[in-house]
Structure formats: structure tokens, C-alpha cells
Design a protein around this nucleic acid. Structure first.
Length: 471
RNA sequence: GUCCCCUUCGUCUAGAGGCCUAGGACACCACCCUCUCACGGUGAGAACACGGGUUCGACUCCCGUAGGGGACGCCA
């Protein structure tokens, strides 16, 4: 199957998680079929479109690993809808010439009054076609008209959606939408259709908030005699409480997930599983996703976003990642936590500590929090719990054990553990009774990775230094 | 208000008329492992929105009700 998909965000903000999901699905569908995936920025709204927003969206796509095929297009890495405005206007004029569209001179105020009246009467709010059949001679002087599509008022329109199935709407429900604004710029409705057609888009995959637009857009395809692409509408992503996703629910922008230490693999896997399934499979690496993806397995109902599940998926991908790669990703987070650059030796230490850190972390932020103590300089400030562990008796024991450590040639974790175990057994106490004070001395906390291994990584000199500082 | 879509454990979902004593994952609880915290392992609890049909048989098909979402702009 010949496949061309596109992601068409409007550059009026960041790349939202819902947009990322749409982009992911478009990308997966194209990759699955060996087709093309295009990026088109819908920037016809000049007042709200910003270059910063375009950058943010592109950054987000790159971070997620969703590469598109229209790079280096006229000095840009994406299609700009605004660039095609001339073409859009030509199409609109062609439709007027062919009697498929007409000029409407109704002012915005007039239309507002019309809608208000309809609403008051409990009538459906739509353009009443007041200029649909009026002769050109009725045109008022000096009023720039908009171009409206002459939509069929009888019959019905059926769309076979690759996700939602067959959906039919009565044409009487559709009104004559604006194609070209009074200032000659195209509306979204016209621009998407023309661009999708011109770009050879075969599959329009987007959020289902566009479902009802589809019937209107089909009218434009029909008026122009163009092939209608296959549509696939994806269900909405809702906040945890079932209402529309908003700031109060948590991170919305893809960039925020990045800053919070999420891995793109986890975000993609989570987004994929949110409304698409492959039996009982939960962990779906990118390669498998491309192999398995299809539109038929996309669910039809809106899904609630579950930050906890995303986190557990992120934890999984952290555990799977090779230590060196993970350390590299974690460095900026650790440096931010520490407020200073990490020396090469410390980066090395971070990588060596990774096997201990990985199973304990859900995000890169967690890794930064848990690993900060390795790089700590000077004495720790013990919290109440730590102070409770550091009793005079514990101090005496540590002092004795430190003396034994001095003489160790093999300062490995297992050798240390042996010494501590032997000591504990001789004193008739549990290992924890001596291991916990060591943990507090070395990490400044009652919680840390396995403490003998920590000592091993810190080295004999640093370990003894920290014990001395703690006593 | 009009039109469109949706409805299985708390959440994401499996399920295409008998395979369902409704499966998996996250979360939660218990136990095991254990130097702390995790990881891991084992186990428990937890759902077919409601009401009518159709059928020998409905989570699965049809209708209705309720609830949720979306659209109704010279925004996209």
C-alpha cells in the first residue's frame, strides 16, 4: 500500500502530549507501510503563530525520535501552510468560477446576530445561506466578501473512518463554510484539503476533535473532484479525572516530560498503549511497534492519562538501558542537582553506580536525587532518622570496623561485607545494626544503594574519610 | 439546543455469540527475598453503565435510557 501521512500542528504553543500521540501514530503508520511521514505547520493564523512554537514542536518531535521526510524544503525543515496561500486562493476562485462556491457579503456582526437568534430559538447554529443564491448585482459597495462553499443540502455523506468505522451525516446538517476570508487568506478547512491533496497525503490521521470537520472537508474534495484520503480519527486523551487535559493535571508539553527525566522510549510506549493494543503486550519497543502497528487496533473511546503508569514504564526503560548511555543522560540532571559540573572521574563513578541506581529509579530526576551523595563533599547534615542510627554505640562499632578496614588490601564490597558480618556475629547483633551506621556515614541517609558496594565505589580513602567525619 | 462519537476491574485495556469461573498491565494489599530502599518472585481483592429485545445461548448483535467526550468561528 502506498502511504503518505502527515502531522499538521498549528504553531501556537508547545507540542502537547495529545499532539505527540497523533504524530507518533502517523509516524508508525507510515513506517509500518514503508511510506512517507510529512510535517506541515498550519500557520495560517498569523496572529497566533510563532517561530518559537515551531522550534518547540520540532524539538519535541526530534526528542521523541519521530523523523519526518520533508526536510530541507525551500530552506526549511517543514512545509509552511502560509507559503501555499496563493494556491489556496486559486482553488477558491476556481470553485467560484465553477459555481461550487460563492461570495458572501454578510458582516461578522450580522452573522453573530444570526447565531444569537438561532441559539435563542433553540435552533442549530449554522450559516443560513443568505448569500447562496443572490446575484452578483446585489453585492454591496466596498464590502470585501468571503468565499463560501456551496455545500449540498440534500442527501447524506458517509465517511469510512479507519478507526471509527462508517459514519454518516445528513448533508442538511452541514452549512456553507468559509473557504477564503475577506482578506483573501484561506481558512483551515480549505488549506488542509488543498495541502493534503497537493502533498499526496493518503491517510489523514488526527484527533477525533476533527471528526465532524471531516464531513465538511469531504465536500471540498468532492467539489474539486479530488480523491478523498482515508481518515483515521484517534480518540482524545483526557486528564486522570476524565476531563480535558489541562495544567492542573500535570505536565502537558512534551518538553516538560523531558525535563522531568522521562525517556522518549517510555513516553512513546505509553502513548502507544494508551489507545492502541496488541493483545496483552505492554512493553512494546519501537521496532515492534512499527512491525505491529495498524489503525484497526486503535480504540474508539477517550483514554485517561495515568502518570503513575507512565512512570512505571519509564522505570522499566531505565532498567533496560545500558549503564554508559544512562549515565550520559543522567549527567545534566545530576549537575543540576549538585549545582556544579561533574568531573570526568565523577561521571565514571556515576556509570559504575548505575547498576545500583537503575532498579531504584523511575526517572532521571530520581537518579540525580539518589546519586548526589556519591559526589558530596564535607560532612553530611544528618536528618532525624540518621541521627537516631548514629548512636554512641554505633559510633564505637564503626570506629573499630574502620580500624579493620585500614588493613584491607582487597577493598571490595564482598570483602567488606565479610568483615561486617563477622563483627556482627561476634557481637551477637544483626548485620543491619552495623550496616545502617555505615550507610548513614557514607551516604548521609538511612536509605541508599547496597552500602558495601557504595564503599567499594567510593574507595578506601574516601570511605574512611567519611566515617571519620561522621563520628 | 442540533449533530457525531464513546461506555469491561481505580486506570489503560484483552474479548470479534458458546473458549469467560471475564485475561493482562499499572496501582493497591499480603507474603518471600533482604544491610536500608528498591528490583525480583508468589498470592489476594477488584469490572462487562442501566433497561428492553434477538438467540438454544449474549461482554459480544439491535433499540432505548443514563453518563462522558467532541463539533457547531472570516481558530486550527
Amino acid at each position: 500500500m502506498h502511504v503518505v501521512t502527515r502531522f499538521a500542528p498549528s504553531p501556537t504553543g508547545s507540542l502537547h502530549i495529545g499532539g505527540a500521540r497523533t504524530a507518533l501514530f502517523c509516524w508508525l503508520f507510515a513506517k509500518h507501510h514503508g511510506g512517507k511521514f510529512l510535517l506541515r505547520v498550519e500557520d495560517t493564523d498569523r496572529a497566533r503563530s510563532t517561530p518559537e512554537s515551531i522550534e518547540t514542536i520540532i524539538d519535541g518531535m526530534k526528542w521523541l525520535g519521530l523523523d519526518w521526510d520533508n526536510k530541507d524544503y525551500e530552506g526549511r525543515d517543514y512545509y509552511s501552510q502560509f507559503d501555499m496561500r496563493g494556491r489556496h486562493a486559486d482553488v477558491a476562485r476556481q470553485m467560484v468560477a465553477e459555481g461550487k462556491a460563492y461570495y458572501c457579503y454578510a458582516s461578522p456582526q450580522e452573522l453573530e446576530a444570526m447565531r444569537a437568534e438561532q441559539k435563542a430559538k433553540g435552533l442549530p447554529q449554522r450559516y443560513d445561506g443568505r448569500w447562496r443564491d443572490r446575484p452578483a448585482s446585489d453585492a454591496p459597495e466596498g464590502v470585501p466578501p468571503v468565499v463560501r462553499l456551496k455545500t449540498p443540502q440534500t442527501g447524506e455523506t458517509t465517511v469510512t473512518d479507519a478507526v471509527m468505522g462508517e459514519i454518516t451525516v445528513q448533508n442538511s446538517q452541514l452549512d456553507d463554510m468559509v473557504l477564503l476570508r475577506a482578506d483573501g487568506t484561506p481558512t483551515y478547512m480549505l488549506a488542509v484539503v488543498v495541502d493534503d491533496h497537493d502533498m499526496g497525503v493518503t491517510h489523514v490521521i488526527r484527533g477525533d476533535d476533527h471528526m465532524t470537520n471531516t464531513f465538511r472537508q469531504v465536500q471540498i474534495y468532492n467539489a474539486m473532484g479530488w480523491d478523498v484520503p482515508t481518515f483515521g480519527h484517534l480518540p482524545m486523551i483526557l486528564g486522570p479525572d476524565g476531563s480535558k487535559m489541562s495544567k492542573r493535571h500535570g505536565a502537558q508539553a512534551v518538553g516538560e516530560y523531558r525535563e522531568q527525566g522521562y525517556l522518549p522510549e517510555a513516553v512513546c510506549n505509553y502513548l502507544l498503549r494508551l489507545c492502541w493494543t496488541h493483545g496483552d503486550d505492554e512493553i512494546i519497543p519501537q521496532k515492534k511497534a512499527i512491525e505491529w502497528f495498524d489503525l484497526g487496533s486503535v480504540g474508539r473511546s477517550a483514554a485517561r492519562f495515568d502518570f503513575v503508569k507512565l512512570k512505571s514504564l519509564n522505570a522499566h526503560y531505565i532498567r533496560e538501558m545500558p549503564d554508559n548511555e544512562l549515565a550520559k543522560l543522567a549527567v545534566p540532571f545530576v549537575e543540576k542537582k549538585l549545582g556544579k559540573k561533574l568531573a570526568p572521574a565523577n561521571v565514571d563513578l556515576l556509570e559504575k553506580a548505575m547498576p545500583d541506581l537503575k532498579p531504584r529509579a523511575s526517572t532521571l530526576l530520581d537518579i540525580a536525587d539518589m546519586s548526589a551523595f556519591y559526589f558530596h563533599e564535607g560532612a553530611f547534615d544528618f536528618d532525624a532518622k540518621a541521627q537516631k542510627i548514629m548512636t554512641p554505640e554505633a559510633g564505637d562499632a564503626l570506629k573499630e570496623l574502620a580500624a579493620r578496614m585500614e588493613g584491607m588490601d582487597d577493598f571490595s564490597g564482598s570483602a567488606l561485607e565479610e568483615i561486617f558480618r563477622a563483627y556482627a556475629e561476634a557481637k551477637g547483633v544483626k548485620l543491619g545494626a552495623v550496616a545502617q551506621p555505615l550507610r548513614v556515614a557514607l551516604s548521609g541517609s538511612t536509605v541508599s544503594p547496597p552500602i558495601f558496594h557504595v564503599a567499594d565505589l567510593l574507595g578506601k580513602t574516601e570511605t574512611l574519610k567519611r566515617i571519620a567525619a561522621a563520628l
